[in-house]
Nucleic acid binder design. Structure first.
Lengths: 192, 192
DNA sequence: GTAATTTTCCTAAAGGTATTAGGCAAAGGC
DNA sequence: GCCTTTGCCTAATACCTTTAGGAAAATTAC
C-alpha cells in the first residue's frame, strides 16, 4: 500500500480546480478524497478541518487574482491602469468562477490581514495615485472601487444582468468610463 | 398527538429569523425542525427540499428589502432619493445580516424574474429619472448603482473595512456623494 | 544497511444533514 | 358521525464530517 503523497498544497490546489469545475459549494473533504482515490479520513492528516481547506482555497484564489492584477497593472497609469486592473478582476471571475467564489469567503481578521487581499487594496491605492485624491478621500475611493468591482462581477456572475440588454461587457466598459470620470472630478466634501 | 400547524410560510419566516440569529449558512431543515420541536422528516410535507426552503427565505428577504426601500423612496427625488434608497439597503443588511445574506442567493431565471429583485431595479430606474440619463446609459447606471450598493455592503459585512479608518459610515456617505456627482455629470460615450 | 522514529494512510465509530416511503391519527368537509 | 385529506412520525438510506487507533510506508539516525 503505497502512499499517494498528499499534502496541504496539493489538496488546496485540487480543491481550487474542483471549485471551478463543479462550484465552490460542492468542494468537500469527501469530494477531494474521491478525487485522489483515498478515504476521507486520510485528508485530516493534512487539513485541520473542512473550513481549513476552504480557507486555503480562498487564500489561493486571492493570491492568484492579486498576481493577475499586478501583471495587468505593470507599466500602466491613470485610466489605463484602472481599466486593466478591473478587467483582470472580471476576467479572473469569468475564467475561474469557483475560485472567484472562494475569494468571496469571509476570513477571520488575522487571516485576512495576512492574505493577498491586502495587496488588492494596495494596488487600488497605486491606481488612485494617478487621480491625486487626498485622505481620507483616497480610502473612500478605494472602498468605492472595491465595491464597484466586487459588486458588478458578483451581480453578473449571479445572473443579475441576464434578463435584459445591453450585454454585460458594454455596461462594464461604460461603468469603468464613469468611474474614471468620477475619480477625475471627485467631489469635495462640501459639494451638494 | 396534536399538530404543530406547520406550513411553508411559517417555515420560511422562522428560517429567516434563524438566519439573522445564527447566519444563513446555518439554516438547515434539521435546525428548523428542532426549532419547532418536530422531526426533520415532517418538514417535507411543506417544503420540497432544503434548496426550496433557502429560496423561500431569499425571496422573503428580497421582498422585505424592496418594501423598505420603497418606503424610503416615497416622496423623494434626486440625491435625496438616492441616499434614502441606499441607506435603506445598508440599514437592512445591518439589522438583518442573515436575511441579507439570503438575498444574495443565486436564483434560477424564472424565480428571479418573479421576485422582488425586479422591484429593486425598477426603483433604481425611478431614482435615475432625476438624473435624465438616456438608454442605454440608464441601464448601465442601474447596474452601477446595484454594484455599488451590493459591493459596498458586501465588503463591509465581510469585514473588509474593519482594518483601518475611516469608519464605514463616513465612506458610505462620501461614496453616495460621489455617485450623485457622477450621475449628475455622467460621461458621454466619447469621453475619455 | 539496520533499527528506530515519524508520518500517512486505513478502518471503525460516532454524530450530523438530507430525503423518501409508508403508516397512523389529527383535522377538515359534508 | 363518517369519509377524506393532511400532517406528523418511524424507519431506512445516502452522504458529509471528524476522531482515535493501528499498520505499513517513508524518513531519520547511527
Amino acid at each position: 500500500m503505497g502512499r499517494v503523497g498528499l499534502n496541504q498544497e496539493r489538496l488546496v490546489q485540487a480543491g481550487a480546480e474542483l471549485a471551478d469545475e463543479v462550484g465552490f459549494d460542492q468542494v468537500t473533504v469527501s469530494a477531494l478524497a474521491r478525487r485522489f482515490g483515498v478515504t476521507v479520513a486520510s485528508l485530516y492528516s493534512h487539513v485541520r478541518n473542512s473550513q481549513d481547506l476552504r480557507t486555503g482555497i480562498a487564500l489561493l484564489a486571492l493570491g492568484e487574482l492579486a498576481d493577475r492584477a499586478a501583471d495587468a497593472l505593470a507599466g500602466r497609469a491613470g485610466k489605463d491602469a484602472l481599466t486593466a486592473f478591473a478587467n483582470a478582476y472580471r476576467d479572473y471571475a469569468h475564467e475561474h468562477p469557483g475560485r472567484w467564489a472562494a475569494a468571496q469567503s469571509r476570513l477571520d481578521p488575522p487571516t485576512a490581514a495576512g492574505s493577498a487581499g491586502v495587496r488588492h487594496a494596495q494596488m487600488m491605492r497605486a491606481i488612485l495615485r494617478g487621480y491625486h485624491l487626498p485622505e481620507p478621500d483616497q480610502t473612500h475611493a478605494v472602498r468605492l472601487l472595491g465595491s464597484v468591482f466586487q459588486g458588478f462581477v458578483g451581480l453578473e456572475m449571479g445572473g443579475g444582468f441576464d434578463h435584459s440588454p445591453p450585454a454585460p461587457p458594454e455596461s462594464w466598459a461604460r461603468v469603468l468610463d464613469a468611474v474614471d470620470a468620477l475619480l477625475r472630478a471627485w467631489p469635495t466634501a462640501d459639494a451638494g
